[in-house]
Simulated assay, not measured.
Amino acid sequence: MKAENFSLQAYFSRIDFQGSISPDFLTLKAMMRCQLLRVPFENIDVQAGKVVSLVPEEIYSKIVERNRGGYCYEVNGVFAMALDALGISYHFVAARPMTYPVRRPKTHMAIVATIADEQWLCDLGFGSYGIREPINLKWLDRDIRQDFDTFTLSLSPEGEYLLQSSGNGVWRNLYEFNLCRQEWVDFEPANYLNSTHPDSIFVQSLIVVLQTPGGKLVLNGDCFKSVTQELAEEVTLSREEVSAILEEKFFLRHQP
Rank of each mutant, 00 (worst) to 15 (best):
Trp120Arg: 08
Ala113Asp: 01
Pro105Cys: 11
Ile111Phe: 02
Thr99His: 08
Lys138Trp: 10
Ile135Cys: 01
Pro101Asp: 13
Pro134Phe: 07
Asn136Gly: 11
Pro105Glu: 12
Thr114Asp: 13
Lys138Cys: 14
Thr114Ala: 12
Asp123Met: 10
Glu118Thr: 11
Ala116Asp: 15
Lys138Ser: 15
Glu133Leu: 14
Pro97Phe: 01
Ala113Lys: 04
Pro134Cys: 09
Ser128Phe: 12
His91Ala: 10
Lys138Arg: 15
Asn136Glu: 13
Ala116Lys: 14
Arg132Trp: 06
Lys138Val: 14
Thr99Phe: 10
Asp117Lys: 15
Thr114Pro: 08
Tyr129Met: 12
Glu133Tyr: 15
Leu83Met: 09
Trp120Lys: 10
Ser128Ala: 15
Tyr100Glu: 11
Cys122Trp: 04
Arg132Val: 11
Ile111Tyr: 00
Ser89Leu: 14
Arg104Ala: 12
Pro101Ala: 09
Pro105Trp: 11
Arg103Gln: 12
Lys106His: 00
Met109Gln: 12
Leu124Gln: 04
Ile115Asn: 08
Gly130Ala: 07
Ile111His: 03
Pro134Tyr: 11
Asn136Met: 14
Arg96Ala: 04
Pro134Gly: 11
Lys138Glu: 13
Ala85Met: 04
Ala95Met: 00
Ile115Gln: 08
Ala113Gln: 03
Tyr100Trp: 10
Gly130Asn: 09
Ile115Gly: 08
Gln119Met: 13
Val112Tyr: 03
Met98Ala: 13
His91Gln: 10
His108Pro: 01
Tyr129Ala: 12
Ser128His: 13
Thr107Pro: 06
Asp123Ser: 05
Asp117His: 15
Arg96Ile: 01
Ala110Trp: 01
